[in-house]
């Protein structure tokens, strides 16, 4: 058994980051359950939530395995964290999801615009991650890429339908794009972690995903007769910090709802 290397620590942190994105958005979408505008859409949103939850479970389980398997000196660690420990027993500052996914559902247009922005990013990411030197991350990406392709299609279809629909639906989805756009910049901010992992052939340099994302999302917005806001250097407000555990005020409330059962009744099972 080899010792835990700096790379292992990085891979674990990276898996948590990707897992947190999926977990937080799954929780947000679950809030729509029984409240979507139509029964068919209710099931569609629940399906997307469950796809994301499955990805989150695989990623958080893997992160826990890495940190648990090899402590300093190659000694198996006591008390390694399970997927549940990671999901339910971390505080807000320990979550490293992007701020986009924690934004409230708002109206249906906001929910769909958020989904389009995130899923288009996730699709570009997973398409590259399938070639990762890390077999587990590559496996999660290979499974996820098919799921996410559908999420993008579904959300994109709705954004076009709303944008190119009635005056009211156009007004709402235009407002949703304007509201959420600033949070998309964070998706493409590279940091030391992604830099090291991209160098090792394990992770993806997120800044490289921007071109594919912009092209995809820009195409959808244009079809939806919506204006594509400025991107990159010309953009205005660029909130960020999710990857460092700095979040908007919304995440705390989301975690309170998601975690309270497990914290009140540790180890509770169905």
């Amino acid at each position: 058994m080899r010792n835990e290397t700096p790379l292992d620590t990085d891979v674990s942190a990276y898996a948590v980051r990707l897992g947190d994105d999926a977990l937080v958005l799954a929780q947000r979408l679950a809030e729509c359950s029984s409240r979507a505008p139509a029964l068919e859409e209710d099931i569609a949103l629940s399906n997307i939530a469950l796809d994301l939850l499955g990805q989150a479970r695989a990623l958080l389980t893997y992160a826990g395995e890495i940190e648990g398997a090899r402590g300093p000196g190659g000694v198996p660690r006591q008390g390694s964290r399970s997927e549940d420990d990671l999901a339910y027993l971390r505080s807000e500052r320990e979550f490293t999801n992007c701020q986009l996914v924690e934004q409230p559902n708002g109206d249906f247009a906001v929910t769909m615009a958020r989904q389009l922005f995130f899923s288009a990013y996730q699709l570009a990411l997973y398409r590259r991650l399938v070639a990762s030197a890390d077999a587990t991350l590559a496996g999660v990406a290979a499974k996820g890429v098919k799921e996410v392709a559908y999420h993008v299609d579904h959300a994109g279809g709705w954004v076009v339908r709303l944008g190119d629909g009635t005056d009211e639906s156009h007004r709402r989805v235009a407002a949703a794009v304007e509201q959420l756009w600033p949070f998309t910049h964070e998706l493409f901010e590279a940091d030391e972690l992604t830099g090291r992992l991209a160098g090792a052939g394990v992770g993806v340099d997120s800044s490289e995903l921007a071109i594919a994302w912009k092209e995809h999302v820009g195409g959808v917005l244009s079809e939806a007769t919506l204006k594509c806001p400025p991107f990159g250097e010309t953009a205005g407000w660029r909130p960020a910090g999710g990857r460092r555990g700095v979040h908007t005020e919304h995440l705390g409330f989301l975690l309170a709802e998601m975690q309270h059962l497990h914290r009140s009744h540790p180890g509770a099972k169905w």
Binding site: E40, I43, A44, Y150, H154
Partner: peptide, 20 residues
């Protein structure tokens, strides 16, 4: 059966409702 505004959406909804 299900409700949908157009054929493409009906197909997507059918996928979600009946083949999950």
């Amino acid at each position: 059966s299900l409700h949908a505004p157009d054929a493409r959406t009906a197909l997507g909804n059918a996928r979600d409702v009946y083949t999950r």
